[in-house]
């Protein structure tokens, strides 16, 4: 029996700038419990007048780091919570959180594979938790990540993904939809069925797929993968739109 879900006061341990619009906030939790890769924490802000705003953020770190979690947050200009987390929050601040929550969009080393991960923008965050967990747990299941970003500068975790991809069994494919650097040899269009066929092909139709990104990307990808022969129940989706403020 798990503990009841309760709010707790976390302390900001570190803040790292990932891209122009994305930061990773490391929180130390007095009531930390091991999460499953793909789960979320809810963050609640309370104004002086009692008004509360609450959002759910994917955990980016693996469960193999006791006592703390990383939340990677995209700054949404008209958002209620993310501008505060980006512009106001500093190391040492207290933040009210509860979690880990969710169970549908999770992958554990024991879930097996082969693993097909498809991300759009900051939708890569829960998939990164899966890849970090895969590495930390020493899982050898073949894995492929197809990651759509606007430009190379918008790619979150770029260097870490390169490092992870040099290890056994993981391959990373980027597509840049708005602009490509000179000499770019990766994909340069929105994710479509031919791209998914190329990336998922070597994993076969028994692959376990996790798709996270804006609704349009999620729906296009999910239906294409089912058409390519993946079983519907092995295609998990999470809509991580610009409203994940």
């Amino acid at each position: 029996m798990r503990r009841p879900l309760e709010w707790q006061i976390a302390t900001v341990k570190a803040i790292a700038q990932e891209t122009a619009q994305v930061k990773t906030i490391t929180l130390v939790l007095p009531g930390w419990t091991a999460h499953r890769a793909g789960q979320h924490y809810d963050v609640r802000l309370t104004a002086a007048d009692g008004y509360q705003a609450q959002r759910s953020y994917s955990i980016a770190s693996p469960p193999e780091r006791p006592g703390e979690v990383d939340l990677t947050v995209e700054r949404i200009p008209d958002g209620e919570v993310s501008p505060y987390l980006h512009d106001v929050l500093v190391v040492g601040d207290a933040v009210e959180v509860r979690g880990p929550v969710g169970g549908y969009f999770v992958w554990e080393a024991s879930s097996g594979g082969p693993l097909l991960l498809v991300a759009g923008g900051s939708g890569v965050v829960p998939l990164m938790a899966m890849l970090r967990h895969r590495a930390a747990a020493g899982a050898k299941v073949p894995a492929r990540l197809l990651y759509s970003s606007r430009t190379l500068e918008d790619v979150i975790y770029r260097q870490e993904l390169e490092a992870l991809a040099s290890r056994d069994g993981l391959e990373v494919f980027h597509t840049l939809t708005r602009g490509q650097p000179k000499g770019w040899t990766g994909y340069a269009r929105r994710i479509d069925q031919p791209m998914l066929a190329e990336v998922s092909g070597p994993l076969g139709t028994a692959a376990l797929a996790f798709i996270c990104g804006p609704t349009a990307l999620v729906e296009t990808t999910a239906s294409a993968l089912v058409q390519l022969g993946l079983a519907q129940e092995r295609v998990r989706t999470e809509r991580f739109g610009p409203t994940g403020t």
Partner: peptide, 25 residues
């Protein structure tokens, strides 16, 4: 409307608060 659409994962915390268990699965 499409861009404002999330899914049940985004309200996992609220659902667990109301039902007392993870409801996303």
């Amino acid at each position: 409307v499409r861009d404002l659409t999330l899914d049940g994962n985004a309200v996992a915390g609220l659902l667990e608060e109301v039902f007392g268990a993870d409801m996303t699965t």
